[in-house]
Design a protein around this nucleic acid. Structure first.
Lengths: 138, 138
DNA sequence: TTAAATGCAAACGCTTTGCAATTGA
DNA sequence: TCAATTGCAAAGCGTTTGCATTTAA
């Protein structure tokens, strides 16, 4: 079911601003920051306001329609839940981001559940380190 | 070798402020925020200034003497490198932090190195999710 | 019609920076 | 002595909030 439908079913209003935030989220494959969403929305509707963007993202987060990730640059990034989970290897030196398939972390998830009774929310994990290039340059 | 010695050897001045920041870092077992370090330092020297704390932490980070972790509450926390590595399971609901032994992530580190040529810096990883209590309450 | 949502402006919390004064080596 | 370091104040940045106005249902 579409995000718009879910919002309406839960009794939230489907405002143009919310639609445009959802469009922005769906228009990219990677994660996108609030500021970037704001730019995309503002290109279509110049009166757009960043606090509405944040409030919409907060709502979508509560409903589980988007997930957050911190790529270490001091701003939160967002990703439509519909697009599935994946993880990121972030090079501390060059900033390059390598996507990691979800299943890589399944064994870890198992261990945490069995040994620690901890249900890890491994939707979009960020792992920092050195990428192939930067390891060799070093 | 002690942090103080390392600072001096590298040609950095061993100021009272830097000594007090190191003391603060060594006085706790867990991670500590810049603000908390500031409070500890200020208790000893009331003219202490938070920008000096940040500048000292920046320096210690560059020298690899402290590592950072983001526990998801919007502030960076610091930990003396001397105290070794460990990881954290953070409950998204109650905020409880469970320490995780370092070796749990060795297999993952291996895979990332072999399959992705990525040298993961798994010093202090933060994994979010639900702790035992909160899973059951839900 | 009316509670929910928005726009605006201001505040917030953590962190960084410019600059003059101080100080460790 | 003198470059490195500090203190101070102010700014920077991403994010949140209070409140009057607008609007989807």
């Amino acid at each position: 079911m579409s995000c718009s439908k879910i919002l309406q079913e839960k009794g939230y209003r489907l405002t143009p601003q919310r639609i445009m935030v959802l469009d922005a989220l769906h228009s990219v494959d990677q994660h996108i920051s609030a500021e970037e969403i704001f730019e995309k929305v503002r290109a279509r509707y110049s009166y757009a306001n960043i606090s509405t963007i944040y409030r919409t993202l907060e709502l979508l987060k509560e409903l589980g329609l988007v997930s957050e990730i911190d790529l270490g640059d001091g701003r939160i990034r967002y990703h439509s839940a519909e697009k599935g989970h994946h993880h990121h290897l972030i090079c501390s030196k060059c900033g390059n981001v390598i996507d990691l398939e979800e299943h890589i972390l399944f064994p870890l998830k198992e261990i945490l559940l069995n040994d620690y009774e901890f249900e890890a929310d491994l939707k979009h994990l960020a792992i920092f380190g050195l990428c192939e290039n930067c390891r060799n340059v070093k």
